[in-house]
């Protein structure tokens, strides 16, 4: 995987997030928190409206890492959830963009620093992944 060289900038990946996607994710993950499907409950607890599961956004970040690295084994992945991804009740939803660059490659570990945005706002804090690489 010659493209995983320190400093390499990885092609940004764009993913649409819709209410239908959130419902599917709620079922698959077991996270049935109503703030991810009920505007009524979301606004009651002070949110602007239904928001994506933080883990949904993180799953998109992991998906980008898998695409870039051709499914290299992930050793570590983590982030903070710094801004909500508000998902409108329409068919288009919102677009999450996952960018990344290779920070370091050493001892068979490549560290990828990510930038995950929605409408120009960073939604994850310090997202990074470490994958196993050959050599």
């Amino acid at each position: 995987m010659t493209h995983l060289e320190p400093g390499a900038v990885l092609a940004p990946q764009e993913y649409a997030v819709t209410r239908a996607g959130l419902v599917a994710y709620a079922a698959a993950s077991g996270d049935l928190n109503p703030i991810h499907w009920s505007d009524r409950v979301a606004t009651q607890v002070g949110l602007p409206g239904v928001i994506a599961h933080g883990m949904y956004t993180m799953a998109l970040a992991a998906r980008a890492v898998a695409t870039w690295t051709h499914d290299a084994p992930v050793l570590e992945i983590g982030c903070k959830f710094t801004a909500p991804v508000v998902v409108p009740d329409d068919d288009e939803g919102v677009v999450v963009v996952v960018g990344g660059s290779v920070k370091s490659v050493e001892d068979g570990r490549a560290t990828i620093v990510l930038e995950v945005t929605c409408a120009g706002t960073k939604v994850l804090g310090m997202p990074r992944a470490v994958v196993a690489v050959d050599g």
Partner: peptide, 27 residues
């Protein structure tokens, strides 16, 4: 397969998606 599909990805064998253990952690 179901977990990957929920975030629009496909799983076609190999290790689980990296965030899959959230299912366990969530329980």
């Amino acid at each position: 397969r179901t977990f990957a599909a929920a975030s629009g990805a496909t799983w076609e064998g190999g290790p689980a998606p990296a965030t899959f253990p959230i299912v366990l952690a969530f329980e």
